[in-house]
Design a binder for these strands. Structure first.
Lengths: 208, 208
DNA sequence: CGATAATTTGATCAATATCAAATATCGTGG
DNA sequence: CCACGATATTTGATATTGATCAAATTATCG
């Protein structure tokens, strides 16, 4: 997957990104440890969580393929949470010092990084707003509309619904049922299902 | 409220931030219009939404007091969504050109902006993860843990529960009931309720 | 002191989570 | 190319829980 971060990394000198492979349950870094790198997840999953003074912990995020994590480590000396691979995982690490040197020396680089983060913020806010929609049908529809592109208002899926349902904050069953209802009502049209490519195409009915 | 953005604005030359007052339903800016400024909401609410080719629209975000909006406009020539005041609202606008000039000329400024956005990203991801917790009790507890500070693991509220319930994605009734249950179980201790300051203090029981 | 907003508890409803199970698809190795 | 196991898709039955609707009480703020 060619992510915005990948594009950014390509602006940096050759070899700045260092791949690392993690086994299930292996720590990528620990809370309080000196912040050495920020990461981009290539495959697998990394759980970020924080240990609290009372002995409990909170999960902050689960970074998946294509996600970045620990960006904030750029601006601190220590990690403020643990990062542990939930399954076998591959990441690319970017040394914070190197990165900071670049963005401090080259303003254009800082601007690029800001752009990257700003896009993230926009995306995350949209997702958060989406989660505020109670009805499963409305939520799914809103998701499709956010993802739809082009005059045709079509969405090409890049992964199974099972994965998308997590992003939606719904169970897969609820999503399949919503899909059925939306199709029933003629609000969407599912094409290219059951075909080799796997990439189903959802078209939104031109209306409302 | 003294937000991180405010701190950032203070780094800019005097008078860069331009206050603007909006009446209910007034547009702050429109989709496709040239991007002239990014904004910080001082009071009131601004709804960001996008019109789609099929005639429908999606809400992207509702920015409230202390929130910023349209940061991404820094990097585009046009706004990609509408922004309209839901109630009488005050904002501070930062001219995109001025801002871009500063961060392009002064790397330290770009770094600051990146830091600002990175913090936002972290916060938003945590909130999104929180929304993934189905149980109202668990969700509220996780929220308290995220907000809790100090060895005492205490949270000082800066607004009524009614407002917090929205952040949690629950109705206020559900939140009050969860509070009652958590207190019942001895997981939290509500102090300073019914007192002038209004700032209730919630202490998490040292355990688990 | 009156009005408005916040807190709180009760009753009921509706919707999604769960649990189950069947079919279909995909990827892999033979 | 096919068999087989793992994953995804789909539908059904049921349970649970938070949303809703109501209403009473208590703060907060001019």
């Amino acid at each position: 997957m060619y992510t915005p971060l990948q594009r950014f990394i390509d602006l940096l000198p050759e070899g700045t990104g260092k791949p690392r492979t993690l086994s299930r349950d292996e720590f990528l870094f620990r809370q309080q440890a000196p912040a050495r790198a920020i990461y981009s997840v290539v495959s697998g999953r990394v759980r970020l969580f924080r240990d609290l003074p009372d002995g409990s912990s909170v999960i902050l995020y689960v970074a998946r393929s294509g996600d970045t994590c620990a960006e904030a480590a750029l601006f601190t000396t220590q990690y403020h949470c643990h990062a542990r691979a939930e399954v076998d995982t591959q990441v690319i690490g970017l040394d914070t010092e190197v990165l900071m040197r670049h963005i401090s020396a080259d303003a254009a680089m800082g601007v690029e990084l800001s752009r990257l983060f700003a896009a993230q913020v926009r995306e995350l806010r949209a997702m958060l707003t989406l989660r505020g929609i109670r009805s499963a049908d409305e939520r799914l529809l809103a998701w499709l509309r956010l993802k739809a592109s082009g005059e045709r208002m079509a969405v090409e899926l890049d992964r199974p619904w099972t994965g998308i349902s997590e992003e939606l904050g719904l169970t897969r069953e609820a999503v399949y049922r919503s899909l059925a209802r939306l199709q029933e009502k003629g609000l969407i049209d599912r094409r290219g299902r059951n075909e080799k490519g796997g990439g189903e195409l959802i078209c939104l009915r031109r209306r409302s």
